[in-house]
Design a protein around this nucleic acid. Structure first.
Lengths: 225, 225
DNA sequence: ATTTAATTCAAACGAATGTTTGAATCAGGC
DNA sequence: GCCTGATTCAAACATTCGTTTGAATTAAAT
């Protein structure tokens, strides 16, 4: 095998290290040392560390999001006039994302990286992710509402939020489960992980909305101020 | 009101800034500038930035965890010989944590901070949190298993994992919901947030375990290698 | 072979970080 | 008063960071 391109070797190494330790914790010098390239090569090929981060994310996330949308469109077509079943919507959302864990090229590294992005406070990164995810959010939000007729939009939004948390946490901290509980079976089997996540979140979406506590039973809740 | 203590003013300011931007992103100089104290005071009173981080977390988290355990013990006592209902277990776990959002002293800042800790890759911080949470994890894991007889332990662990993700994400990225969806009603009402989170996660815990996909129906799944 | 552009390299830059130092200031006990 | 310990302060320390520079090297085209 020919020596891989400098540009892609930087990208691969950055992906691996970012996934392991986070974006801030990994310096460009860590990357170039591990990738055995010159420091200036990073800026020559990518311009800045921020741009490198974006490139790392975009390379994997863009195909994932395309596949998500394609699968959802396909599910819509198969469903005809009926709404797509909630479990199928979730599968379209989860499977393309978790499948990269089984990809020997990407390895288990990238999934954790994506999971971590959500928790990042980096402003530019947030905006970048919003841009990348915009269409996915629009399409899947609509799909959730369609799959859950009768559930108030506000509740649907909150539950989407909870679902995103479960998804991100599972991606990012898969190793935590091992440490917490001692179990480690099935970690490698992403199919099972997706199935479990669908079971959990689908039931959460479908949960009965419990009434507010009695103490706030007045028509207009008394404002403290 | 007398000028607050230097030591606690550092702690308060650090808490606020850490919650806003994260631990790495906030420098000691940011803190001392905002708290109007001398740089060396941080090391004089806390020894290091790491120790300051621990102190910030421990101050709030320790009472929260104590309250969690106390409430769970109380619920156990009230339940007598019967297992504590799942929703009550979750309430013992969520309410003390989310209540700090309504605390004007702590403000909404700290909740986000706790949520963020979970996603941090900082090794020492991870171990510190494990130590702080050890008893909580033990007690509540047991409570979940008791409340969910018939559910395999492995499934219970995974679902606890998903639940933790929803909880952390909700704490950390409460503002995301606003940006994603446009809704913002009820954000301030932590009671409603807790109720919604309980609805979602309790249903998730109770979900029927769907069978593995048919293609893997063989007794011994064929290994690729 | 000569020219041209693309790429790699060692070295340095300026800024920011956590930490340490040693003197100055404050507080209270004798 | 004076002394002792606790606290504050300005200044510096040693690293590390992302980035830039300008020359050296490589590769391809004429």
């Amino acid at each position: 095998m020919a020596k891989t391109d400098t540009k892609t070797r930087i990208l691969d190494t950055a992906e691996r290290l970012f996934a392991q330790k986070g974006f801030d914790a990994v310096s460009l010098r860590n990357i170039i040392a591990s990738a055995k390239v010159n420091l200036a090569a990073v800026h020559y090929h990518y311009g800045s560390k921020q741009a490198l981060i974006y490139a790392v994310i975009a390379r994997r996330l863009r195909p994932i999001n395309e596949e998500r949308l394609a699968k959802l469109a396909e599910a819509r077509a198969n469903a005809g006039r009926r709404p797509v079943k909630l479990e199928n919507v979730l599968e379209c959302l989860f499977r393309p994302l978790f499948r990269v864990q089984a990809d020997p090229k990407a390895g288990p590294t990238f999934a954790r990286l994506v999971g971590r992005v959500i928790g990042e406070r980096n402003e530019g990164l947030q905006k970048f992710m919003m841009g990348e995810l915009a269409e996915v959010i629009i399409q899947f939000s609509a799909a959730f509402e369609t799959a859950l007729p009768g559930l108030a939009k506000e509740e649907t939004d909150w539950r989407s939020h909870f679902m995103a948390g479960s998804m991100a946490h599972t991606l990012c901290n898969a190793d935590l489960l091992v440490r917490f509980t001692g179990t480690d079976a099935g970690m490698s089997d992403y199919e099972t992980t997706v199935r479990r996540l669908i079971d959990f979140t689908a039931a959460g979406f479908r949960a009965k909305v419990s009434p507010p506590p009695k103490k706030a039973r007045a028509k207009r809740a008394p404002k403290k101020k």
